[in-house]
Each structure stands twice: as structure tokens, then as C-alpha cells.
């Protein structure tokens, strides 16, 4: 399953709930304000690092660039562009949005 998160983890529990619900082998794609969860040294970096043990964490590069944080992304996060987003959707059986 592909999960998308579009809210900042600092103002919403969408990421937290998503990570609870994402079973092993699934992909979590950070989009829109959700990309702030990809920042290294942030208060959620530890949570993201832990999640990487069981799920793939990806982030939408244009959203990172738009927010001026493209150079602050922690290691291990898969960066995708819009066509990569489409590929992720097509590769999986279903997609769940965490709003």
C-alpha cells in the first residue's frame, strides 16, 4: 500500500497516525506540507528513522524545493518527482491519503 501525508508533522498528527497504520513493506510518500517531516535534525527525525526500518519513506522533491528545504533532507529518504509519484501509485494495489 502507498500512503500519502500532506500535513506538517509539527501541526498535525497525520504522520503519526499514518506510521501506526502503515504495515511492513508499504511506502509513505510525503507531499505538500508533509515534506517538512523529511528534515534532518527535526524533532520527528528520530520517528522517521525508526519507520525506515519497516517502510520506505519518500518525499516529493518539487514540494521540498518550493519550501526551500531541499538541501536539509535526512539520509535514506527516497526523492521522487511527479512522474515518480505516478509510478508509486501504479506500482501499488491501493493508496491511502492521510489528510
Amino acid at each position: 500500500m502507498l500512503h500519502t501525508v500532506n500535513k506538517s508533522p509539527f501541526g498535525s498528527n497525520s504522520l503519526e497516525t499514518c506510521l501506526k497504520m502503515a504495515t511492513s513493506g508499504s511506502t509513505v510518500l510525503l507531499i505538500e506540507d508533509g515534506v517538512y517531516a523529511a528534515l534532518k535534525d527535526s524533532s520527528v527525525a528520530e520517528t522517521i528513522a525508526q519507520a525506515m526500518g519497516t517502510v520506505t519513506i519518500a518525499a516529493l522533491a518539487p514540494d521540498l524545493a518550493a519550501r526551500g528545504v531541499a538541501d536539509k533532507v535526512m539520509d535514506g529518504i527516497k526523492l521522487v518527482d511527479y512522474s515518480g509519484f505516478v509510478d508509486l501509485v501504479c506500482e501499488t494495489d491501493k493508496t491511502t491519503a492521510w489528510l
Binding site: 501506526k20 497504520m21 502503515a22 504495515t23 491501493k94 491511502t96 491519503a97 492521510w98
Partner: peptide
């Protein structure tokens, strides 16, 4: 429990979020 809900969501064909 949340852990059980995670498994139930995996079994769905379509998930709609609100």
C-alpha cells in the same frame, strides 16, 4: 486497537480518506 486496524486496512480494495 490501532495495530489491528492497520491489518484491516491492508485487506481493503479501496480506501477513502476524510
Amino acid at each position: 486497537a490501532d495495530s489491528e486496524i492497520a491489518g484491516m486496512l491492508d485487506e481493503q480494495d479501496v480506501v477513502l480518506s476524510f
